[in-house]
């Protein structure tokens, strides 16, 4: 018993002060990609060709689909001019799928709070059922970590629950395999109304590295209406937490500014 006590003292208080203070991210962290169109040589499609998930389009100017992006840096490594750079912005969650397609000079429209009627019901107590539907255990692990003392998800009124009948919504990971689609549908049906769906990771948003495989449905959006998209492969836990807190209004999202880099 004394050793329990002294260990407790030595291990100390480890909960991050987030969101009151910013997170301590690694120097080499790859967050929101930034496009500098002025550096992009015309006629060069090196980044488009390098991207493993076809997340980059170059019709009139470059556009990156953060929903497909693996944040792997193949594009920035391929660009001879450095026109694409990964910034340290960890806030990546969006409310609409279309908001994740980031064009040159456009800042990301971050997720907004739930509509008033939903927010009144779910804003202070959000219970989620997690369903992995082909997830690689990367997203799952970094969702699980929100339950540790470091992130202490419970202090925000958010909890992962065992039964869909006790849940206010689903948090889906993985590209939604054909072999899991029925189980996902049944789990969704078991959640009482009103209910929300959150898609975490490139797989759940757009299929990730398995996009267009006949065995997958390219994400949760194929069978469910998604209320929150959290990009990444996997997203950093702080990115997931930031998205959840925006959804319940504990972090406010300004309207996106157009014409300037974020």
């Amino acid at each position: 018993m004394p050793s329990l006590f002294f260990t407790r003292l030595r291990q100390g208080q480890r909960t991050l002060p987030f969101p009151d203070a910013g997170p301590d991210l690694p120097e080499r962290f790859r967050g929101l990609p930034i496009i500098d169109q002025s550096l992009c040589p015309s006629g060069c499609d090196a980044c488009v060709e390098a991207c493993p998930t076809d997340a980059i389009a170059s019709d009139d100017s470059l556009a990156i689909d953060l929903g497909r992006c693996l944040f792997c840096s193949e594009c920035s490594n391929a660009c001879p001019q450095g026109a694409i750079q990964f910034s340290r912005q960890y806030q990546l969650a969006a409310s609409r799928r279309a908001d994740l397609v980031l064009k040159t000079g456009q800042s990301l429209q971050l997720a907004h709070r739930l509509a008033d009627d939903l927010h009144r019901i779910l804003g202070r107590s959000l219970k989620l059922r997690q369903v992995s539907a082909g997830g690689c255990n990367g997203c799952e692990a970094d969702i699980n970590v929100l339950n540790t003392v470091v992130f202490d998800l419970g202090r925000f009124g958010i909890q992962f629950v065992a039964s869909p009948r006790h849940a206010d919504g689903l948090l889906v990971t993985g590209p939604v395999t054909r072999n899991m689609s029925l189980a996902l549908e049944k789990t969704y049906a078991a959640v009482p109304h009103p209910k929300i769906v959150i898609a975490v990771g490139a797989c759940a948003i757009a299929g990730g590295p398995f996009r267009e495989h006949p065995e997958v449905l390219n994400g949760a959006g194929a069978i469910l209406a998604v209320d929150l998209f959290i990009p990444g492969c996997p997203p950093h836990p702080i990115t997931i937490l930031d998205g959840l807190l925006r959804l319940i209004g504990k972090i406010a999202s300004p309207a996106a500014a157009h014409g300037e880099a974020p």
Binding site: E49, A50, C51, P52, T53, L70, C72, E74, S132, A133, G134, G135, G174, P175, T177, R178, N179, M180, A183, P209, F210, H213, P214, E215, V216
Partner: peptide, 21 residues
């Protein structure tokens, strides 16, 4: 339940998506 068809997708590679799979 997690079957994503990785082995058939690797055939014909290596390609740009191989290492990510």
């Amino acid at each position: 339940y997690q079957h994503r068809g990785i082995e058939p997708a690797l055939v014909g590679g290596p390609g740009k998506r191989t290492i990510h799979m």
